[in-house]
Design a protein around this nucleic acid. Structure first.
Length: 517
RNA sequence: GUGGCCAUGGUAUAAUGGUUAUUACUUCGGUUUGUGGUACCGACAAUACGGGUUCAAUUCCCGUUGGCCACCCCA
């Protein structure tokens, strides 16, 4: 059997290759390469044949067919060399993903599925409603809400000319889209607040690094229509507990940047202070004094840090209302026992934030760079700024790519996969054409009862199917062969004990249900 | 966007200016017909792409692409 198969193959391959190639090889190099492959193939075969025949049985039948093709091949190897050469030249262009774009590989599926499931569970537990907004919007929506001068808009946004010449942009974040949607659907007339959540891809033309991609995914929650410290506290709770549920310990860094007026006053003060210490600052920070003095605050230069520590703090410049509001948020967090750090240097990169701003950092690593897993804040002015009614709002987003990265890093963490889908404990093996046809129908019957079986209709030998069943760690395998089809029965094999039971096909569902329990 | 490091089968790796580019895992097939875990045998499969130097490049040089790291920024 085996030898027959091999002969067929050998006859086929040269033929196929011949038909493809007409031009002779140009490179001298290729021929030896092909030759090498041929010899490689042949040499071990010859030895193995010898071995087998000597050690095992002396069946001349097997020897002959295996040896014959050898001869055939040696005659043909030159052609094959040409073929290979040609093949290489003709190879169509291969594509890679664009920079910063990636495939989420099936081997990571369990992480992604559990991350998504956890998001859904968490959001719905807090009464957020699922909603989607477009990936593509008028570019001005983003520039107006996020703000010119921010890195996100100036450097990182994907902007294209649409066919009619208008400028459209790939969403770099969710909030602007939700604010727009709130207005377009007149949601101010719905019971307030509107609580929505979503998961999806965002795009930022940044320089990629681990945990930072040009297409990345976020879990996002927004509460639009209420100004209340409890709302901010709830959002932080959801974000914090979401990560905690997945097994990721985080610390919340929180700050309040007050109203634009508060900030303006503060900036004046801060600028004055920084100017007075100008000579101590780094070059970059010096430049920033004029451009965006708030940014100086999160400089990492040690020389800057000293100056920053003495700098006036924004909290002292908040209006009474903002101060009170912020205190209330902190009280809630204390009450909820959410660990937070007051960080007076936390200034988020988007213009629309008012009052509360926060970010969540991993506590269990020292990784400085991509340790921010999520962030958010209040944006009371955004909806109005986009032409809607004056509407306070607050929200957060969590970077799922980073969450998955952290989860993989953790491993052995049972919490991480708590949300992973259950695996089916049953494999369906079939043998023979007739059985295969029949198997499809039985699998369909099981599926109707929400029983999903593993199966591989491409495999024909029972051996390989059982092997696969073993690898999949199923507890039981259903075996359907010719005999069983005729008898209307099926075998259930217990994979651990190896005990098999023959049952009526009509009873499959009931039996498998039992196993599922 | 700035700077640095890197690029060998699907994965992880070895080696080299010169005949057959190493090894392991994975995948597929086989070790007599319809029974997995072990063992053995075999097959598939790579020097990212494009130029240059050279008698000869996977190796040296340049460019492109991509990855990673730091900055920037953030998720």
């Amino acid at each position: 059997m085996a030898s027959r198969k091999k002969i067929v193959l050998k006859k086929k391959t040269p033929l196929k290759k011949k038909s493809v190639s007409k031009t002779p090889a140009k490179k001298v190099k290729v021929t030896p390469k092909a030759k090498k492959k041929e010899t490689k193939k042949m040499a071990p075969k010859a030895t193995s044949v010898k071995k087998k025949t000597v050690v095992k049985k002396e069946s001349p039948k097997k020897n002959i067919p295996k040896n014959v093709p050898q001869v055939v091949r040696t005659e043909e190897y030159r052609h094959e060399g040409h073929e290979q050469h040609k093949k290489k030249e003709k190879k169509p262009q291969q594509f890679q993903p664009l920079r910063g774009m990636r495939d989420l590989h099936p081997k990571d599926a369990k992480f992604w599925r559990s991350v998504y499931r956890a998001a859904e569970q968490m959001a719905e537990a807090y009464n957020f409603q699922y909603m989607e907004v477009p990936v593509l919007e008028d570019a001005n929506l983003f520039t107006r809400s996020i703000g010119k001068g921010t890195d996100v808009v100036d450097k990182e946004m994907y902007v294209f000319d649409d066919k009619d010449g208008s400028q459209i942009g790939l969403r770099p974040e969710f909030t602007a889209g939700f604010a727009r949607a709130y207005i377009t659907h007149g949601m101010q007339s719905d019971p307030q607040p509107i609580k929505v959540w979503t998961c999806g891809s965002l795009f930022r033309h940044d320089r990629p690094q681990a945990g930072r991609y040009r297409e990345f995914r976020q879990f996002d929650c927004e509460t639009i229509g209420t100004r209340d410290a409890a709302v901010d506290a709830e959002l932080i709770t959801v974000a914090y507990n979401y990560l905690k549920d997945l097994g990721l310990e985080t610390t919340v860094r929180i700050n309040s940047i007050g109203s634009p007026a508060d900030r303006a006053n503060y900036v004046i003060e801060l600028t004055a202070y920084l100017r007075s210490k100008r000579s101590y600052l780094s070059e970059l920070s010096k430049k920033r004094i004029a451009k965006n003095p708030l940014r100086v605050l999160d400089s990492k230069e040690p020389q800057d840090r000293e100056v920053i520590e003495e700098a006036p703090q924004i909290i002292d410049w908040l209006s009474e209302d903002s101060k009170k509001f912020f205190m209330r948020v902190l009280e809630y967090l204390d009450h909820l026992e959410i660990p937070y750090i007051l960080d007076s240097t936390l200034v988020r990169g988007l213009d629309y934030y008012t009052d509360t701003v926060f970010e969540l950092f991993r506590t269990d690593t020292e990784e400085g760079s991509q340790s921010a897993l999520g962030g958010g804040g209040r944006y009371d002015l955004l909806v109005e700024q986009l032409g809607g009614p004056a509407t306070p709002a607050s929200g957060f987003a969590i970077g799922l790519d980073r969450v998955v990265l952290a989860l993989k890093d953790l491993r052995n963490n049972p919490k991480a996969l708590r949300h992973a889908p259950k695996k089916s404990p049953v494999y369906f093996a079939q043998l023979g054409d007739q059985a295969r046809q029949h198997a499809l129908r039985l699998i369909e019957n099981l599926r109707k009862e929400d029983i999903i079986t593993y199966h591989n209709l491409g495999k024909s030998s029972l051996k390989s199917q059982l092997e696969q069943a073993h690898k999949l760690e199923v507890t039981h395998t259903l075996i359907l062969g010719q005999k069983e089809v005729q008898d209307g029965t099926i075998i259930i094999r217990d994979m651990e004990s190896g005990i098999q039971e023959i049952i009526d096909q009509g009873k499959i569902v009931r039996e498998v249900m039992k196993l599922l329990k």
